[in-house]
């Protein structure tokens, strides 16, 4: 990847991390850990890969994105606002009564959401249905899905993992946000899902493992997926990440799965992100 492009992405995504922290502090509830682990992949897809038209969110040819781990909604909302699906000032309404920014994504309330999600394990099946419709209608859109590593404990994920290659849906690209933590602790302690890549490989998926915070590697993963279109096999990217990434006191702490930062904690986090100067005007900033 061009170093300039990488530097540009890093600055841009750093601001999204700030948005996530401030949004959650404002709402006093929500899920910072898994939002911060997933933000690089989500941002890269919307900024660099997916075709969509934010002025025409239901454009039939658009690429789809399904946030199967719906609790990372703040990450998706920050990105959708950044690509102009809705005004950025809505971010401060997260989880508040009457807001289109529901605690978990609600497609009926907010443009840019290709499906409601939130109850774990369901997004991959929904993506399968969208991908199947795309094949039936001879459309060439791709369907990107982001699932949590804890989430793949859900049995429905494996029903979908069986069905998607069965129907030769090579237009599906699943990212597993492998931050190794879930609410009750380490995924490997609570209920091991490992080895992930081998499981999917045995279900007839193309697999690749990357560092999900490095844009060079995310770019390679997308290239791998694109090169596999036509292979009749879907692609899964095991994206190794750090829960709470870039906020030192949140990193690798399952306590930060579903706890919002206080005002002071948010300021501390913003200091670490080096965005203090934008504390007052973050909702206006482009």
């Amino acid at each position: 990847m061009n170093p300039k492009k990488r530097a540009f992405l890093e600055v841009r995504v750093n601001k999204l991390r700030r948005d996530i922290v401030l949004m959650l502090s404002e709402s006093s509830s929500g899920h910072p850990g898994g939002s911060l682990s997933a933000i690089d992949v989500i941002a890269y897809l919307f900024f660099e890969v997916m075709k969509f038209d934010s002025a025409n969110p239901y454009w039939e040819e658009r690429d789809r994105f399904i946030l199967s781990k719906g609790h990372a909604a703040p990450a998706l909302y920050a990105v959708l606002a950044a690509v102009n699906f809705f005004p950025k000032k809505l971010l401060k309404t997260l989880r508040k009564l009457g807001s289109p920014l529901q605690g978990h994504p609600d497609s009926r309330k907010l443009p840019g959401l290709d499906s409601s999600t939130g109850s774990l394990g369901q997004g991959l099946s929904i993506a399968g249905g969208i991908a199947l419709a795309g094949k039936m209608d001879k459309k060439d859109y791709s369907v990107f899905v982001l699932a949590g590593d804890g989430e793949i404990q859900e049995g429905q994920i494996w029903e979908a993992a069986m069905a998607i290659p069965h129907f030769e849906l090579d237009n599906v690209c699943l990212f597993v946000d492998n931050n190794e933590l879930q609410i009750d602790g380490l995924v490997s302690d609570v209920m091991s899902v490992y080895p992930i890549a081998e499981k999917f490989a045995s279900f007839n998926w193309n697999t690749m493992e990357i560092n999900g915070h490095k844009f060079d590697e995310i770019e390679k993963a997308v290239e791998f997926f694109v090169s596999n279109r036509g292979s009749k096999k879907p692609t899964v990217i095991i994206s190794h990440t750090i829960k709470g990434k870039c906020v030192s006191f949140m990193e690798n702490k399952c306590e930060w799965h579903g706890a919002a930062p206080t005002k002071d904690e948010a300021i501390k986090a913003i200091e670490e992100l080096g965005c203090v100067e934008s504390l007052e005007n973050w909702l206006e900033e482009k």
């Binding site: 039939e60 497609s107 290709d114 499906s115 394990g121 369901q122 997004g123 991959l124 099946s125 929904i126 993506a127 399968g128 249905g129 969208i130 991908a131 199947l132 419709a133 795309g134 039936m136 209608d137 049995g155 429905q156 029903e159 979908a160 069986m162 069905a163 069965h166 129907f167």
Partner: peptide, 25 residues
């Protein structure tokens, strides 16, 4: 071409149904 057997996996069948309906079917 418009019939799909999802096998003995009803939860996934409902998810596929949702995805197809989201795509106008």
């Amino acid at each position: 071409d418009r019939f799909f057997n999802l096998g003995i996996a009803e939860a996934n069948m409902m998810g596929f149904a949702a995805g197809l309906a989201l795509s106008g079917k």
